[in-house]
Amino acid sequence: MAGLEDLYREIILDHYRNPRNRGELEVPPAVQAVGFNPLCGDEVIIYVEVSDGVITDVSTGGQGCSISQSSASMMSTAVKGRRVAEVRRLVRAFKHMMSIHGTGIGGTGDDLDDDGDGGNGAAEVKLGDLEALRGVVKFPVRIKCATLSWNTLVQALDETFA
């Protein structure tokens, strides 16, 4: 049985207490998407502004537990200023990490690994601080908390290019 320290790493609690890129962006030019976790009622709002294939700004709102809020905060710092194609690879790598042995234990059919490489292509992507969320996998009911903002980011990107 994993201990609480595996889940609540210091960097996670830091992002929870001091969330980065918190707030709203003007829509348009930004696009807004809302994600729900029906299990616990958490809601996350992601604003994303894309220009010339680059995420020029991102902002997060909503309410949730330390895992969902810190994951949103870390996600925002990880994607801001990066190319959309690169971000989509990062999302795949993150979701791959959030599945036990890459088999998608938390998978619900909304798995984003749709490039047919079984997540292998994601292995080269550097996750950096996001590695701190790896311990969440040991607590399967919390995986959805960690992936909520990432799924919502993808919704916002899909809408941007719809």
Partner: peptide, 25 residues
């Protein structure tokens, strides 16, 4: 403390409680 986080620590001590909106949004 968010209910999800609270119930996680309670679970660590074998205390089973429900966290969430209880189907009453």
């Amino acid at each position: 403390i968010h209910p999800h986080d609270l119930s996680q620590v309670l679970d660590d001590r074998g205390v089973c409680v429900r966290a969430g909106h209880h189907c009453a949004k």
